[in-house]
Simulated assay, not measured.
Amino acid sequence: MENKVNTVLVTGGAGFIGSHIVDQLIENNHQVVVVDNFSTGKEENLNEQAEVFDLDIRDDLTTVFSKFDIEYVIHQAAQIDIQKSIAAPDFDSDVNVTGTVNLLNYCTEYDVKKVVYASSAAVYGQPEYLGIDEEHLVNPISFYGVSKHTPEHYLKVFSELYDLDYTILRYANAYGIRQDPKGEGGVISIFVDKFLSGENPTIFGDGEQTRDFVYVDDIAAANLAAMDNGSEEIINISCNQQTSVNQLVDLMNDIVDTDLEANYEEERAGDIRYSYLINDKAKEVLDWEPQYSLEEGLKETFDYYKNKY
């Protein structure tokens, strides 16, 4: 079946997850417009077939929306550093809440069909039970979790007032190619950098904390699936599997054939102890499920970065 060509705006399209979404959209013959302020996104991540605007989501976006008949917005741009959110909650909320509201105003003014919004497992806070489904209590323990959850309410009310369709995707822990190990990188990107440099990784806490790691290509595929499915739904995007940080180190040692030992430091504020997300709803509503096991995703990531060292 031929894909219908749509015009899709991807915010944060030069970033880690956003750039993979852009690539998959272009592979599926969509016209893609990117808005990115390059605070963390990189020009080298950009697909040359995308139309790119160096703008912040808090900026005047009239030039973008007036030039293109944008049908879908896939909203990835965000402040994603939990520790930064705790140090500067005003900046965190300005980007994640005010920036999103600004974007939604343009979506309603220019009759966008649908917004696919990247939320986070951080909205759940400390789990009351595992695995976490979409009915779990929302109780964030970091300002980042608050600032990712708040736009979910805005989306619901924008939808009710202005008939703007949406799907909210709550990501588990993303990893993969193009994730920056510096600054706000996830644990896997930081560890990959350490392993390929022959340095011992640092674990905050005892390493028994668990996460649900989902590969970036799988996340990108979920966003494309949400363009035509999951109307007004909140959906977990995950592998439905928990892996401890200590297990992650062991797996990386096996893949790279090294014997590095972790250094342990004090647990950080705002870090959740155990987490994994149930993905049954994604399978049912989006007809999506992860194609990569953690081992497969790590091998692909290591293979990519080996060429850079």
Results as ranks from 00 to 15, higher is better:
Gly15Gln: 11
Phe16Asp: 14
Phe16Cys: 04
Gly18Ser: 15
Ser19Ile: 06
His20Cys: 07
Ile21Leu: 02
Asp23Val: 13
Asp23Met: 14
Asp23Asn: 06
Asp23Ile: 08
Asp23Gln: 07
Gln24Trp: 06
Leu25Val: 08
Leu25His: 00
Ile26Arg: 01
Glu27Ser: 04
Glu27Ile: 01
Asn28Lys: 13
Asn28Gln: 13
Asn28Ala: 11
Asn29Gly: 05
Asn29Tyr: 09
Asn29Ala: 15
His30Ile: 03
His30Leu: 06
His30Val: 00
His30Gly: 03
His30Asp: 05
Gln31Trp: 03
Gln31Cys: 04
Val32Lys: 00
Val32Gly: 00
Val32Arg: 00
Val33Asn: 03
Val33Gly: 09
Val33Lys: 04
Val34Met: 10
Val35His: 04
Val35Pro: 08
Asp36Ile: 02
Asp36His: 01
Asp36Tyr: 03
Asn37Val: 14
Asn37Met: 15
Asn37Tyr: 01
Asn37Ile: 07
Asn37Cys: 14
Phe38Tyr: 11
Phe38Asp: 08
Phe38Glu: 12
Thr40Trp: 03
Gly41Cys: 07
Gly41Phe: 10
Gly41Pro: 07
Lys42Pro: 11
Lys42His: 07
Lys42Glu: 15
Lys42Gly: 13
Glu43His: 12
Glu43Pro: 15
Glu43Gly: 05
Glu44Tyr: 10
Glu44Cys: 13
Glu44His: 06
Glu44Thr: 13
Glu44Ala: 12
Asn45Phe: 01
Asn45Met: 15
Asn45Trp: 04
Asn45Cys: 04
Leu46Ile: 04
Leu46Gly: 05
Leu46Trp: 02
Leu46Ala: 06
Asn47Gly: 01
Asn47Asp: 04
Asn47Cys: 00
Asn47Glu: 08
Glu48Gln: 12
Gln49Lys: 11
Gln49Ile: 11
Gln49Glu: 14
Ala50His: 09
Ala50Gln: 04
Ala50Ile: 01
Glu51Val: 06
Glu51Ile: 02
Glu51Ala: 10
Glu51Met: 13
Val52Met: 10
Val52Ala: 03
Val52Asn: 10
Val52His: 08
Asp54Cys: 13
Leu55Asn: 07
Leu55Gly: 07
Asp56Ser: 03
Asp56Tyr: 05
Asp56Val: 10
Ile57Leu: 10
Arg58Thr: 14
Arg58Ser: 12
Asp59Gln: 07
Asp59Ser: 07
Asp59Lys: 07
Asp60Val: 06
Asp60Ile: 05
Asp60Gln: 02
Leu61Ala: 01
Leu61Gly: 01
Leu61Asp: 01
Thr62Ile: 13
Thr63Tyr: 03
Thr63Met: 07
Thr63Glu: 14
Val64Cys: 07
Val64Ile: 01
Val64Glu: 05
Val64His: 01
Ser66Asp: 08
Lys67Ala: 08
Lys67Phe: 09
Lys67Met: 04
Lys67Leu: 15
Phe68Cys: 08
Phe68Pro: 06
Phe68Asn: 11
Asp69Gln: 14
Asp69Thr: 12
Asp69Pro: 12
Ile70Met: 09
Ile70Phe: 03
Ile70Glu: 09
Glu71Asn: 13
Glu71Cys: 04
Glu71Gln: 12
Glu71Ser: 14
Tyr72Trp: 09
